[in-house]
Design a binder for these strands. Structure first.
Lengths: 341, 341
DNA sequence: TTGTATGCGTTATCAA
DNA sequence: TTGATAACGCATACAA
């Protein structure tokens, strides 16, 4: 059986209280008894029951994240790296990370109610905001500490702590870059419409076209699901329907990688026939052939920042400014091809 | 404040016990009162305090894993995918996953004592066994449920539940494949020596050479740290020191990907001048150019299997046969180049 | 059908 | 310097 304070108390002849305080290092316990108790505790291999402590303290030293964890998401390096940043930083502050896998078949809000409402964590990190996000509404109205990767959709208020990249500007930069390289017909593969950042990226795309005096054509815009496969499918569909396209921007690197394959499947060359740009700058972007032009965002550091921010919120020392909007950075690589004259 | 059974009891006029049983769906409570209580609970937004429940039930419905989670490990798709498999399967059984990041600066055993000894989880998954693994010794001697990805080093007993791939055979297959393709001088990049599977892979390499009547040359064998960088460095070092090498086997795909770059840095072509083989078959293996020959192991499924196994152990229904040894599978791709005559 | 009492393991308050 | 007691929130054995 597991060793408890009671066991040590019995063995040592002291009360549970004294044992607790001796082990807790309080100075109101006699040095001799402290030593005796500590020795016995070590001998018995005592480990405090963290659950009991959590109940008593009403705090878990754990932060939570509810995330897609199926096999399709295995390649989703944005999430993989974000989680590493979170877990790493949490660990530095002696916090653990509770991960609840979000199965497509399960109601996501149930998970939030269970984990957050059930006191399993001191706070949560919400990733990939939705338009009119019910998770945020729930956490806000229940005063559960949380921080968000991403902000609300345009037009909604973002009255919570978040870190986001200004992806509207990011997309504009990508379009400007392609225009500068001589492209007139630029396709766009968006994330699912219910995600908040999708609207920003679409706006950035339009901004870029506007600035260049190019027309916005709805038929050049398509939606993927952020995974590799859909990038390929959408790219192939775009190319087949609109042979005049010479460039495609995919709204995350994974879809961009898929798009590269789609380009090849159409018998075209990436960079030379069709330029490709992604978003995120996951490691694969610089290792793929040809290397992938993309919008960089510091994913690991965002995970770090979200975590320190969340710990601040938990300990009620949250800074006044709630949102942090990072500048995106265009990283030009081989998939841009050469400037056309 | 947070709603408890007590609050509902007061509001409804029933006792805590009755409330508890009404909400628990027991049939020894009057249908009318049940309805009344449920309504009030819903109105008040009641969520059971899971921590209290865990303390009371002495069970957490959580499994744990202690894993490296720094930025260097971000690309470590073996772990990324394994964790997805674990979290996914856990979720299917209504279990959550507690991740504790293992910082290089922290004592790993402390984490095990804290998490496992501290009752935070019902069981643990141990990944990447060490030679003479203290984690396994600790968990075994404390009767804490656990399962292991990987088995003990050769010569040690593996008296615990594990799933492993027969990587000795895997390496032998890789060598035989390269020999068949006409290679006589095959370099090897091993994982760190303290990992248990390193010895198996080295033995498989030797088996392959023996079977082909080729001499084992210690100078063809080098050690990496499983990351991309070290694959590159070790490959470059091997090639420079031994220009007669025409093939290199790296013991995981990430190092193999690094090795591919190393080959190029030496002015050579992957596949044509130097054949490369990896181990794991992470997604990148089939997406890199040229595609990577490797030893396949079903990582996600291993995560699934480990988890169901662990849940069996936790509920005391563990099968008799403790270990599962999977057959490795050689996947030949472009990095093998063409058969030489 | 409902309520009382007890315990899970810990820590803090207060009295001795 | 030490110990008895209570509380965290829940669920059960047992009594009514």
């Amino acid at each position: 059986m597991r060793v408890t304070l009671k066991d040590i108390a019995e063995k040592s002849g002291y009360s549970i209280t004294t044992v607790s305080r001796a082990l807790g290092g309080f100075d109101d316990v006699n040095e001799g008894t402290r030593k005796r108790i500590v020795t016995i505790a070590d001998d018995m291999g005592y480990q405090p029951n963290l659950i009991a402590r959590q109940l008593r303290d009403r705090r878990t030293n754990t932060i939570g994240i509810i995330a897609p964890m199926n096999i399709e998401s295995a390649e989703d390096d944005f999430f993989n790296i974000l989680i590493k940043g979170i877990a790493h930083t949490a660990s530095l502050h002696r916090y653990d990370l509770l991960i609840s896998a979000q199965l497509p078949s399960h109601d996501e809000m149930d998970a939030y109610r269970r984990i957050a409402g059930g006191n399993r964590v001191d706070g949560l990190i919400v990733a990939r905001t939705y338009r009119d996000d019910p998770r945020i509404a729930y956490l806000s109205s229940n005063n559960i500490p949380f921080v968000v990767s991403g902000r609300s959709a345009p037009g909604e208020t973002s009255d919570f702590h978040y870190i986001d990249v200004d992806s509207q500007t990011g997309l504009r930069l990508a379009v400007e870059h392609f225009v500068d390289y001589g492209h007139q017909h630029i396709g766009l593969i968006l994330p699912p419409a219910h995600l908040a950042f999708t609207a920003y990226r679409l706006k950035g795309y339009q901004d870029g076209l506007d600035g260049a005096g190019l027309p916005f054509r709805e038929e050049y815009v398509t939606y993927g699901d952020l995974h590799r496969e859909s990038g390929q499918q959408q790219a192939e569909a775009l190319i087949q329907a609109h042979p005049e396209l010479t460039a495609i921007i995919a709204c995350n690197d994974l879809m961009a990688l898929g798009a590269m394959r789609g380009v090849r499947n159409c018998g075209l060359r990436v960079g030379e026939d069709i330029a490709i740009c992604g978003f995120d700058d996951i490691p694969a972007a610089q290792h793929v052939t040809p290397t992938l032009t993309t919008i960089y965002q510091p994913i690991f550091e965002i995970g770090e920042g979200l975590t320190t921010r969340l710990l601040n919120v938990i300990s009620q020392e949250a800074p006044i400014e709630k949102g942090i909007l990072l500048d995106p950075q265009l990283v030009i690589r081989e998939s841009s091809g050469k400037k056309r004259v």
